[in-house]
């Protein structure tokens, strides 16, 4: 999928990351293969894919931490290969399984990276205190990181991004290995950053979490982006239509009326008073109007949003099916 397909909600002015034909090869093997994508300012963009799909390599190229084999990427208008310091001043990075100096306290760890960022002493102290409060680690600021749980370390990593006052936060598998409570807390922090207008690039293989926070996603497979867009768009593309609306109502000719709602692709009468509608969008309001318009009585209305997991599963099922059929035929 080309970047042009996704430019409907973005203008060139507000694009903060743009990759064109971005490729990375190791010994002739392409681990990232000519990918194209744009990320707009304030957007939360998910990089999805199994381990080894090329997500981390893509991130490292964006930070100028690994050489680009071909193609180009621009981060906040800078080329990370030529101007890595400019990029790194404005981009915060939380690596997969972030590491800290265990023998230093949380504050000391942040102070070290703040010095590397070039912050002056007073500014450093102020920002560190604020960041630790923000990620709810103030009470353990003077404790050694060796005593921290994985969830606390991840939050400390996020505090580092807050100290940097980054325009872009790149989070690589940030919730992998966290317990449900820690995951929830972390996702809430991501949503807080999103509310502040920070652009977030989230790499993960945990689909439900990505779906919860991301505006758009790109699905990686063997170094290529095979699907990209908003979840609803992908659902339309892969599942045909992603929203399933269930209507429980009494009335005459309801199935016919519901089928005329724009965006509805199918209406199935599950029982005499229950209908399951498949639609391209959330049509609950229209369905309620249709029931009322038909002098019916509405008892229940529910919607199942398209699930990224269903899209993912269906996409790979569709990819495997033709080749399986071919093998069978042979």
């Amino acid at each position: 999928m080309s970047s042009a397909d996704n430019n409907d909600v973005k203008t060139s002015d507000n694009i903060v990351i743009a990759a064109q034909g971005l490729t990375k090869s190791y010994d002739g093997v392409r681990v990232v293969d000519a990918i194209n994508f744009d990320i707009a300012r304030g957007e939360v963009f998910g990089l999805l894919g199994p381990n080894g799909a090329g997500k981390t390599t893509t991130i490292l190229m964006m930070l100028g931490l690994t050489e680009i084999s071909s193609g180009k990427v621009s981060v906040l208008g800078h080329d990370p290969a030529r101007s890595p310091l400019r990029v790194k001043r404005k981009v915060g990075y939380l690596p997969d399984s972030v590491g800290f100096y265990d023998y230093l306290t949380a504050s000391e760890n942040l102070a070290y990276t703040a010095k590397l960022m070039g912050l002056r002493s007073a500014e450093r102290t102020h920002r560190i205190a604020a960041a630790l409060a923000r990620v709810r680690l103030s009470d353990v600021a003077d404790k050694r990181v060796a005593t921290f749980s994985r969830g606390m370390r991840q939050r400390l990593g996020l505090a580092e991004i807050i100290v940097k006052q980054a325009d872009i936060a790149i989070l690589d598998e940030p919730t992998s290995g966290l317990d449900p409570q820690a995951t929830l807390e972390f996702l809430n922090l991501i949503e807080e950053l999103k509310a502040e207008g920070i652009t977030i690039l989230l790499s993960s293989h945990l689909l439900d979490q990505v779906q919860r926070v991301c505006d758009r996603v790109a699905l990686f497979q063997s170094g290529r982006i095979v699907l990209m867009g908003a979840v609803a768009d992908l659902a339309r593309q892969v599942l045909g239509a992603g929203f399933v609306v269930e209507v429980e109502a009494e009335g005459t000719g309801l199935a016919r009326r519901l089928a005329t709602i724009p965006g509805v692709t199918n209406v199935e009468a599950v029982a005499a008073d229950r209908f399951r509608m498949t639609a391209e969008r959330d049509v609950r309001a229209d369905a309620a109007c249709a029931v009322v318009g038909a002098n019916g009585s509405l008892r229940r209305l529910s919607v199942d949003e398209p699930s990224l997991e269903a899209i993912y599963a269906r996409y790979f099922q569709d990819q495997i099916a033709p080749s399986g059929a071919a093998r069978h035929a042979a």
């Binding site: 490292l60 930070l63 931490l65 890595p84 310091l85 400019r86 790194k88 001043r89 981009v91 915060g92 990075y93 939380l94 690596p95 399984s97 972030v98 590491g99 800290f100 100096y101 265990d102 990276t113 590397l116 960022m117 070039g118 990593g157 580092e160």
Partner: peptide
């Protein structure tokens, strides 16, 4: 081994 290298090198230093 501490997994600090990528985090440190993601700061504005060479």
């Amino acid at each position: 081994n501490r997994r600090t290298l990528s985090r440190i090198l993601a700061q504005p230093i060479y």
